[in-house]
Simulated assay, not measured.
Amino acid sequence: MRLPFLAAALAIGGALTLAGPAHAYGAYGHETIASIAMANVTPRTRAAVKRILKTSALLDTPTCHAATPQQASTWADCVRAIKDADGKSPWGHTAGWHYQDVEVCDPFEASLEAACKDGNCVSAQIERDVALLRDPATTPHDRVQALVFLIHFVGDLHQPLHAGEKHDKGGNDVAASYGIYASRRLNLHSVWDGQLAERAITSGPDMIHRYPAAERKSVAAGTVQDWSRESWQVARDTIYARIDGGDACASTPARLALDEATIEAWVPAARLQVERGGLRLAKELDAALG
């Protein structure tokens, strides 16, 4: 994600309580995606992930841990807060890897190509990390780094506002209230990162389990570009169309009041994106390590 935001837990029925700070897709969202993936990879892949993460000290980021898949899922956001002696971020060059500015009102392929120039977008980095993990010549340091980036970036790709936007930094420029909760720090992007993701994950049955083989195969079908297009379509048809009166390309208000009906309408899509992220991460891990 481009900026850290507060994540709030929303109880069933619409009551809101403020939670502690979280990073991209909310720590809860990323950790859930990682947990779904680990429940659905092969035993061989699961052992390989654990073996590689035992070398996470090679990353030399003592304030950002990556010893478990859940910790690894948020490592890529944590390191962006690290500063050197001059106050600069050694990880600043990775900022553009967390998203792709694919305009929802432009043709997908041309906009994706522009957004991914020189590989600086989330889908290109997913493919790069898988290639590094599959290459036996990759060094132990680069291998563990590729793994923690992959776990995080597959989650980021499935947050729709990391995959599609409308000249608004993926909704970061659109101030929003969430039901009765309003804050100057809250915007459309942060709602999908935190409050909505948490509500979706906690609505309905537990999402962390072994999915039937047919469902795993169906959800994980396609390529990274296919998944990019799908997330972009969710941004266009589910998010922007809803807030812009049915026309995703109409002018978006500078400030939104997200009522309970809108929140409820978005919950199934948000839940599905987390499920897709988990099962597709399992597919990528199996392809790289299984």
Rank of each mutant, 00 (worst) to 15 (best):
L150Q: 04
L6D: 03
V49C: 02
A37M: 04
S190M: 04
L196W: 09
P4N: 07
P21N: 14
M38E: 09
G14D: 10
R143I: 01
V274H: 04
L285T: 07
G20M: 06
N120F: 11
A213G: 08
T252P: 00
A146Y: 02
D135P: 03
G155E: 07
G245T: 06
L150N: 00
A57Y: 12
S190L: 05
R44W: 07
S35G: 13
S231P: 03
A24G: 15
T68E: 11
T42P: 03
F5E: 12
K54W: 06
D86M: 09
G87W: 10
A39P: 05
T138S: 10
C116E: 02
Q159V: 14
A257T: 10
A19Q: 09
K283V: 07
A34C: 02
T238Q: 08
P136L: 00
A48S: 14
L10S: 05
A163N: 06
S218D: 12
G14H: 01
D101M: 09
V224H: 10
S111E: 03
Q273V: 08
A110R: 11
V174M: 05
H162S: 14
P140E: 07
L289Y: 11
S203T: 15
Q195E: 14
G170F: 08
W266L: 15
H30C: 05
A67C: 02
P160C: 01
R216Q: 15
T42C: 10
L6Y: 12
N40V: 08
P205A: 03
E284C: 11
T139D: 02
K166G: 05
Q225M: 13
R242L: 04
L281W: 09
H23Q: 14
Y181E: 02
V224K: 10
A163P: 01
L133M: 05
Q233T: 13
L133P: 08
K83E: 13
A72G: 11
D247E: 04
A221W: 04
I82N: 09
S203D: 13
S177H: 05
A197T: 15
I243V: 15
E284S: 14
D226Y: 02
Q125H: 10
A257V: 09
L18H: 07
E198G: 09
A176K: 10
E230T: 12
E264F: 08
G278I: 00
P43R: 01
E127W: 02
L16F: 14
L196Y: 07
N172T: 01
A287D: 12
S203Y: 05
T252W: 08
A95E: 06
A48T: 10
L3Y: 14
A250N: 12
Y211C: 13
C121N: 03
E109Y: 11
T42H: 09
L161G: 00
